[in-house]
Design a protein around this nucleic acid. Sequence first.
DNA 1: ATCTATAAAATAGAAAAACTATTTCATTAT
DNA 2: ATAATGAAATAGTTTTTCTATTTTATAGAT
Lengths: 295, 295
Amino acid sequence: MHKTIPPLRALVAFEASVRHGSFKQAAVELNITPGAVSQQVIKLESWLGYPLFIRQVRKLKVTEQGMSYFSLIAPALEQISAASKTYRQQQENRVAISLTQALASKWLGPRLADFVSKHPDIEVHINASNSPVDFYTDQIDLAIRHFNGIDPQLEIQLAFEDEMRLFCSPDYQRQHKLFSMDTLLHTTLIVTTLQPFWEQWLDRFTTINAEQRNRISRLHFDQALLSIDAARRGQGVVLTNALLVQEELKHGELIEPFANSLPLEKHYYLVHPKQQPLNTAACTFKAWLLEQFSA
Amino acid sequence: MHKTIPPLRALVAFEASVRHGSFKQAAVELNITPGAVSQQVIKLESWLGYPLFIRQVRKLKVTEQGMSYFSLIAPALEQISAASKTYRQQQENRVAISLTQALASKWLGPRLADFVSKHPDIEVHINASNSPVDFYTDQIDLAIRHFNGIDPQLEIQLAFEDEMRLFCSPDYQRQHKLFSMDTLLHTTLIVTTLQPFWEQWLDRFTTINAEQRNRISRLHFDQALLSIDAARRGQGVVLTNALLVQEELKHGELIEPFANSLPLEKHYYLVHPKQQPLNTAACTFKAWLLEQFSA
DNA sequence: ATCTATAAAATAGAAAAACTATTTCATTAT
DNA sequence: ATAATGAAATAGTTTTTCTATTTTATAGAT
């Protein structure tokens, strides 16, 4: 099929030289030296087997054959340029962020309208997944990750410090008289599988011993969102970050019976790979996110 | 204008990989290693900013974006390939020869029909000019030149030895009783400007002295063809190479009253530049010419 | 279950292409 | 007459392209 492909850099130099009628001007456009243009054109002439220009002192005249060849390859190069511009530029207006479903739903979701209204030309992709992403393969620009904040390959900025707070619905509190710590013995603990912090919390803030703790009833969910929902429905008490229940607190669907907070070693950070420069949209989005973190 | 040109070798590798759905097969087509194809595709992905293929073990799947980009650039590459094939191949079927007008008209012209009938696909260009040519600029493959046969830059083969013979029309011979050398005193000598051999010829083959020679009437032409024509019309006697009057001799339009021949130091050679390899057509034409020289 | 074949990925090094810097040349402009 | 201009020629530097090799994860055969 493609057995006959000319030296393509030479073709680009030729096309620009015809348009400008000058190696000098072509060089300016291509941002290379005139000598390089000259050599590339000679290379193409050698490949084709005949001259494409009549060279005069300080002057260049394209041959008829050169002109004819130009008329065929110029539109093709233009097509490649236009397609490439479009497909590359597509990325300038696009930003994709990866974060957990809980954060996407409870934190970013309610705020996104603000960003969109401020930047209607930017296409925002939310990759809400609890599994780790590959920035390159999955075309992710930014991520909010929960980790220790150490990774030499990433640009890292703290988003939120993580801490576990206890929440339940108002009804649950009334029914179980959740007014002192020891009443937790008679409640159901809603456990999020990936956030196994109940032991630490109870040990830190109650006098309930290990044996007693083993006897407390538990409900397990593998998603923070489901745990929060269960608590909202009055099925137990949940430990989570207040960030994820801001709306429920606001609407009185959940309350915080005890003001105790268990700080964690891992926090939420905004990250992106050092080796992958952010496009305009991603920079804009990042700036907006940093604003939101500190608000 | 062409500010957005992707790495073009990478584009070629990408296009072939999409068509084959395999780096391996693309490599076979492009006659490079699979590793090189892989690297070029990665390079294009990096330039565009997103992946073009989903890589699976021993398998390659083009992304939607990749397919979409392919649909735009593939026709353009095909256009470049087709144009380049045509314009390069044009040379394979073309041969151009430079020689004097006299040789073109009197020697090559009558014989060319033979070559053309044997090779109808070969396009023959006759550059009949008495001024020197530049092989490269003027796109000349071969030349028949009149010189001493020494030029290190050329491939050289003897075509004909040059010699001056005397010719006139039968009528002129009768009117001037051209049966002995001294009768030349009363003729008109037809002189070709670039072939000033009358003095030598008369000195070598007659007893006419210098003073007598100065008194012979002369007619000057700057083209050998015109000199021959004048002789044919009975306007005088002409010195020329027998090669150029073969048809006139055959038709009885010219005769050779005296069989004397003045050998010259320069001869006719078939030449072409050592640095400019002959294409197929030119090789074929050269072989045919060499045949004609020895016939 | 084990072994072989396959094709893409990753890596280091070699070869070729692309480009730069400089000088020369033949005008052209001042 | 001198200075400016742009293409040509040349040697050297930088970058790209490509090769060779090993690794990896299957997919297929036994």
